[in-house]
Design a protein around this nucleic acid. Sequence first.
DNA 1: AGGAGTTTGTGAACGTGAGAACAAAACGCT
DNA 2: AGCGTTTTGTTCTCACGTTCACAAACTCCT
Lengths: 219, 219
Amino acid sequence: MTARSSDGNRDIPEATVARLPVYLRALVALTDQGISVCSSEELATAAGVNSAKLRKDLSYLGSYGTRGVGYDVDYLRYQIAREIGGTQDWPVVIVGIGNLGHALANFSGFRSRGFRVVGLLDADPAMAEASVAGIPVRPFADLPAIAAEHGVAIGVIAVPAVAAQSVADAMVDAGISSILNFAPIVLNVPEGVDVRKVDLSIELQILAYHEQRKAVQAL
Amino acid sequence: MTARSSDGNRDIPEATVARLPVYLRALVALTDQGISVCSSEELATAAGVNSAKLRKDLSYLGSYGTRGVGYDVDYLRYQIAREIGGTQDWPVVIVGIGNLGHALANFSGFRSRGFRVVGLLDADPAMAEASVAGIPVRPFADLPAIAAEHGVAIGVIAVPAVAAQSVADAMVDAGISSILNFAPIVLNVPEGVDVRKVDLSIELQILAYHEQRKAVQAL
DNA sequence: AGGAGTTTGTGAACGTGAGAACAAAACGCT
DNA sequence: AGCGTTTTGTTCTCACGTTCACAAACTCCT
């Protein structure tokens, strides 16, 4: 049982990666309830998935359970956190301090999950005097300086659609290689830059589609 | 060219449903640019997908293109909108008027995509005096009345995690069958109720995972 | 009219993901 | 120690999603 660090380098399926944070959150909840050991069935229920899927997902990370017993909550939590980079501190910048930017800046889940907001930026100079959630708002032009100073790899775009592409371009120029985009537009970025989008109207439209189908089927 | 409504009843793959709103948005952008006909290649580029995938997606709706020519932008736009329920008006309620609720209430994309906010609700009575985006904020207890009055099928949850499940329960009781959940928690709902979740920290953690891998591979 | 050039719609091949089912491994009881 | 019980880790199968590749169908030009 040698500690081969090569274990950590297998590539984990994308679908699994997307669920690991959910498991992590469920484990934290279990810890808060004072539970120190759980079965795959219990954890799966807490995470809202099927237990076979949970076990298969965890098997990509390694063998961290004990047959006949279950998983040690704290140990598994540490292993998942390590795998998804939750044990390190990720500096993040947020661009666009409108209503949404305010909500994001005030979001408490950042710190507890290893993210630290090191910059709030807005193109409006009037904005750049206030401070939000204890963090001063600075002019958009300061992006390269802030990014360089803190080694920022992750940026959040919370500006209107028309401005989003130019913000993304500036982020890429500033060395940011992962972008979370809230603007309802398809971003164009070079190879090697990851973009994830969060799009309210798309989600609503998907719900509306299913809602319409339910209505039709009910006839 | 008879209007056979039977066309609309085939079931469309989930992955395709999730992309149709993106195509719709791209078509609107093309219209704004004065473009009235486009090829699958052009539309696919605008939507950020591969052209073969676009054509296959569209083929689930019917044959709305012309070989050797392309798609009529307005006609295709209407067909997609009809398919995903975008031609009707969906009343929506938003529960939780904190920072995020404010951002959602002010979001202009609702109206233009067939959604109408008919209620802003908050448990805090102090909140229930103000109005946001021209819509009065009402106490949470009014949910059943508002839902019944407007025939609301879609609800948005923008409350803290601890309150989310009870809000979801109340929504289900009020006859809401599609929920968009912004709270970082797995909701428990009865069969027949659709839930979609939007989770900031999960998105960030997925980005962090890939960021970490990039860093490791760079060694 | 006929042929060259385009572009759609779709069948077939391939890859990824989900779930069932079971062998392997640990525990506890006698 | 041996046996039954529990629960993991993994294999196998099926369903879903993506991409390729090409025939069908349309336009335009001569």
